[in-house]
Design a binder for these strands. Structure first.
Lengths: 347, 347
DNA sequence: TAGATTGAAGTAACCGGTTACTTCAAGGCA
DNA sequence: TGCCTTGAAGTAACCGGTTACTTCAATCTA
């Protein structure tokens, strides 16, 4: 067993005091005489005593960890969220327990319940699951924040990105730029975020009276590439592609470039998420900034804000408004190279 | 307290059996009569009983979690590792407890000890810390894997990337391509991986009899940009830049491109790590593939491999040999655009 | 000086599970 | 019929901390 080392009773025996004194001394309780404290500290050091966090948690009824429930998401999005959460966790002196939420609702509930007693709070990112079902089966007195969940009737803190508004803004932007025949590469079918983006796309196209077509996708780079190939092969009159996320847009970009299609002159291209890559590809990708790391931080803040207060937890629903980032794939800002710059004397 | 719900005793009372029977029934022990099992299961369902993982762990002396100790690393590297670990954790039915390792050695030890009793094993990535100091203060009977640590005298499982060999290979590659005046943008000073890369660079340059200069850096995109600016401003006769990681190479690339320096014709450029971005920037970046996610997976496999066996844990040191990935920044393979490809009929 | 007050340390119950050991009843055998 | 096995359920100790409550001695008040 990896857990057996000296216990508080060993230290007590070694120091010639009671376990209560050991506990008090090591936890900085003030009603301990300096000489006793010294005795305990010396004994602890000598024995190499390290408190057993698990036992401590059981006794104190808190674990000092926040559970993070994630689907098996695509890299960037997932890691950006963890980054934000991790940063906030540091500030709050908390640890992060990562847990996977399976696709299957029943196993998902099981996985989440597995966290009871190991976490003080829960952050759930599960755009693929029905929150009603999920939350009904959850320990009710565990502070929870739901990120980008589907609509539901449960009472939980919630942070939601306005995917619909983001898609709307993007269609408007493409329209302003002169596009009138758009294709949307959609995200996975069961995903609420993907659905909202698609809905925003279709309704905006209808409102503006422009052409709006849907191609299937799944948030992967390959799906984006496949969609672009399809657009080229079918010789559609498309003049703008709006992918449901950046990775698909980048997949599409690779294919378009390899076919000699100039971006944005022959075709406009846009993504969604503003992953770090987006500004680094050439040409830089126009997208919708989501600040998923910021959402992670905010989620943590929400959890810790209502911690000192009562447990009534009047639940809040916070909308994050995404921001359109216009880059080169829809508007060329700078010439690609600037020959007037300082010459580089290459021998 | 977030943890109080029905306990095993509540279920026992409600079902009219003993706690032992409840525990046995719910854990699938076979010496339970079917009717009793049914009684227990019904009672548990009715009360909404969920086992308290913390208590379970204390009793079983295992936590079902692996601790991951990370410095506050730059995005891609960190997230790739977590991705690999997370994937492996799924396969092993384990959870991941993320923990930050502060720069300060004393606080680092404290942070790691804080994990005792909450994890069954430990994965440590701390290229900035002295492993001797770290491991001396660690619970000795906690299976541990050290990733890319500095040399030391302790007995631990260890996975190490051959940074020296990678740098060597890259210098050879640049030399083959015709470079004879190289600059290395170095990583942060205290980082063992950065040191090895720099050592490989310098020694290879000496062996090949070519010029090798060092510029300071810290693994950040900005540092790469700054170094490139410095190269341009000082009008060095450099014909190849080898950055200690990809992010710095990409930072340098942006600056070089904005100054009209053609890659690779005017200047070769290479990085290290092969982060996902590397193949997506234009021109695609030549680099050394590290497969950090694979290291994460491997680390987990090592931990679980010696789990069923005895605890003697004959420690192993495994070297991962990195692979050179030649892309466009050192060797142009394809023309940038291919006008002969299927025409795209843009109206 | 007796009785009340104060401060510090000790005892033991508790957190919520698991499980070695004990008890008890039913079936097997002589 | 009486004793022994066998199987299943119950009791209580334990995992390693924390802490309410108790004990006890020293100091303070009248």
């Amino acid at each position: 067993m990896p857990t057996n080392g000296p216990t508080v009773r060993d230290v007590a025996r070694h120091a010639g005091v009671s376990v209560a004194s050991v506990s008090r001394a090591l936890n900085g309780i003030k009603t301990v005489r300096p000489d006793v404290r010294k005795l305990v500290e010396d004994a602890a050091r000598e024995l190499g005593y390290v408190p057993h966090a698990g036992a401590r948690n059981l006794s104190l009824q808190r674990s000092g960890a926040v559970g993070v429930a994630l689907p098996d998401l695509h890299g960037e999005y997932f890691s950006e969220l963890v980054r934000g959460l991790h940063q906030a966790a540091l500030d709050h002196g908390t640890q992060l327990l990562l847990s996977n939420v399976p696709q299957d609702p029943e196993r998902a509930v099981e996985a989440l319940n597995h966290l009871r007693g190991r976490v003080d709070a829960l952050v759930i990112l599960a755009p693929h699951l029905d929150p009603d079902c999920l939350l009904r089966n959850l320990s009710p007195n565990l502070p929870t924040v739901l990120l980008n969940g589907a609509p539901h009737k449960r009472n939980v803190h919630e942070l939601r990105l306005d995917n619909y508004a983001g898609a709307q803004a993007m269609v408007q932007h493409l329209h302003d730029r002169g596009c009138y025949d758009l294709v949307h590469i959609a995200g996975p079918a069961g995903n609420i975020e993907a659905q909202e983006r698609q809905r925003g796309f279709l309704e905006s196209c209808a409102e503006l009276g422009i052409n709006g077509r849907i191609l299937a996708g799944d948030f992967s780079e390959e799906a984006g590439a496949a969609a672009a190939s399809e657009i080229i092969a079918s010789r559609l009159t498309t003049d703008g592609i709006f992918a449901a996320n950046d990775m698909m847009a980048i997949g599409a970009m690779t294919v378009l470039k390899s076919h000699g299609i100039a971006l944005p002159d022959d075709m406009a291209l846009a993504g969604f998420d503003d992953i770090p890559l987006a500004r680094l590809v050439t040409p830089a990708l126009t997208t919708i900034r989501v600040d998923i790391a910021g959402m992670g931080k905010r989620a943590m803040a929400v959890l810790f804000q209502d911690d000192p207060k009562d447990r009534v937890n009047t639940p809040i629903l916070e909308w994050k408004i995404p921001e359109l980032i216009a880059r080169e794939t829809t508007t060329r800002v700078n010439p690609r190279t600037d020959p007037s710059a300082a010459a580089h004397n290459n021998p």
